[in-house]
Design a protein around this nucleic acid. Sequence first.
DNA 1: TCAAAATGTTGAACAAGTTCAACAAAGGAT
DNA 2: ATCCTTTGTTGAACTTGTTCAACATTTTGA
Lengths: 196, 196
Amino acid sequence: MEITPLKNYIQTNVDFSEAELDTFCSYFTQKTVSKKDFLLKQGNICRFEGFVIKGCFRLFSLDKEGRENVLYFAIKNWWVTDIDSFTNQKPAHLSIQALEDSEILLINKTNKDRLYTELPKVEQLFRIMTQKTLVSLQRRLIRNHSDSAQERYDHFVTTYPEINQKITDRQVAAYLGITHEFVSKIRNKRMQKKIE
Amino acid sequence: MEITPLKNYIQTNVDFSEAELDTFCSYFTQKTVSKKDFLLKQGNICRFEGFVIKGCFRLFSLDKEGRENVLYFAIKNWWVTDIDSFTNQKPAHLSIQALEDSEILLINKTNKDRLYTELPKVEQLFRIMTQKTLVSLQRRLIRNHSDSAQERYDHFVTTYPEINQKITDRQVAAYLGITHEFVSKIRNKRMQKKIE
DNA sequence: TCAAAATGTTGAACAAGTTCAACAAAGGAT
DNA sequence: ATCCTTTGTTGAACTTGTTCAACATTTTGA
């Protein structure tokens, strides 16, 4: 099992001893997920929290018109779960699908609860992680209001070049909340050339 | 000092003894904030985390065109802070302003750090709080992509009637990411009548 | 390897929401 | 009470992004 990336990730957030790191990692199991396979489908209960080792996932939800809205993409060193579904063991709003052949470390609810009681510092780790995620989501929400589609596309591409290179324009569009046709028009800056 | 609302709030989230509740609350101080006064201005360092007792605040940021984007409104039982600025003691992205004469309980960084070490359960409390906030923000982001301005307005008004009644249409517009003129047109459903 | 499916491109017509301006109404401060 | 500022309303012209359709290109699966 590839635990090194997980250990490295934890160390960037909290101060764990080598023994604590081992305890932490011992509760995870590695899983291989093929391209297009689902880790979770909207409506099912999310039984895991996952740390991506390799590959790429998308977390999305279907709206009433049947359109897929992407919450985020996860490559190596990102976490994936439907927090609400996982912590309260109720039906998920989100679906999680592999966009490439991927490797992921998973922990189930029982083991995560054990971790919280056995290793109190784990509370701190997940509090800090969740805070960071919240801050970036707050900024993304505000950017969605203040920036044009063009600006949001440019921001995505420059902020996440590694992700951009793994996914299709249709997926970027579903993340930005615009149509894939418009992404195409943004990319080939024909619209700007017309103005010139 | 009015600590009852804070105690009640904590009990809905974690299992604290009466003694723990008292310890927790002892680190807070009450402050009266007049309408239009700022608790925090963008660029300054956020020195507090606050629990609203009475009144109403808005948390917003100015974009490059000078427009105010509202992240959220906070009435009684809501928390207000710029998390990133508070936890890392760096300049804030957000401004926090009272929209009414308000009462708020504040805790500073030193005391919050003391709380984390003296009362380990506080880690759990804030992890759970942050998780809940994250889940609702994730859903709001997706709604912003899938719903029309009309639908988002209706959702806001029915979800937060108490807030809606305290604020102006201009503030709602800044929260929804649309112009106040368009909110006016949505409210007086003239646009729909034209279609009929 | 070949057919089928998914992806990307482009244009024209359209819809949703913005901008600007002008005015009415309501609230605050003195 | 009164002036001044803020808020809400409405219309017309405009901009941004959507929809639909047609086609080219790439990828995938058997």
